[in-house]
Design a protein around this nucleic acid. Sequence first.
DNA 1: TATTGTTATACTCTATAACTATA
DNA 2: TATAGTTATAGAGTATAACAATA
Lengths: 131, 131
Amino acid sequence: MADDNNRQIAEALLEALVRTSFEVMAVLNRTAAENDLSLTQLRALAILRDREPTMAQLAGYLGLERSSVSGLMDRAERRGLVRRTTSSSDARAVHVSLTSEGHLVSARLNDEVAGMLAPMTGRLSAPSRRG
Amino acid sequence: MADDNNRQIAEALLEALVRTSFEVMAVLNRTAAENDLSLTQLRALAILRDREPTMAQLAGYLGLERSSVSGLMDRAERRGLVRRTTSSSDARAVHVSLTSEGHLVSARLNDEVAGMLAPMTGRLSAPSRRG
DNA sequence: TATTGTTATACTCTATAACTATA
DNA sequence: TATAGTTATAGAGTATAACAATA
């Protein structure tokens, strides 16, 4: 019976976990969409905030094929958010980095996401101030 | 200083929340992909497990345009997972329901997701059995 | 030979706009 | 007139395969 109870709790947790994840992704998607970006572009901009990876490394971070990232960065570059620079040590490699515009956008996205998820994180961290 | 502490906690929670959500979505995506389905198809099958909504209602559940759901259900129908039936009360409306094959697939997906997320939910619900 | 990045191609997902049929 | 669903169209995201340049 203890096992049965655990199973029920696990099922409820599973549902809560999946539902919460969808809510978080919805917030991320909405934030991205309001800035005319896709979720993947948002992820890429977040990754690039503190890194200047090669295309292959970026593909690794995003869990995508290199060819997919080529198109992704084509579109981001066209919008002036990132730039490509050839590596000095390996003539095959191309590094990606945020432009100043890209940094601005990425920081703004970060703040917006934090603000939108504040009801979920703030409630846990901040004590109620009623009374 | 208490406020500053709360802010730091909220930031850490935000990161954990987003990271966890991405991990959950990765599991869902992988599960879907292994069954040659997209995440949206997986969501739709999950929704249809206990409902036979109209196309418009399904679009509402999924947060998509009706036209997007038309294509989605075209592909699901072509694979024998769902069927369309015209409403008896409103000749304009079309209800969507799982076929027996669709039910099998949907149940299997549910089990696979539960299994893959067990490390995240089981750890919280089940006491350690060491010793 | 192996790796990096790109291009060509194909498919899914999604939206907007226009349409038909019904209410 | 308004609503339900579909179709046409377009663009983004993704993968696989083939390629050129470099290691």
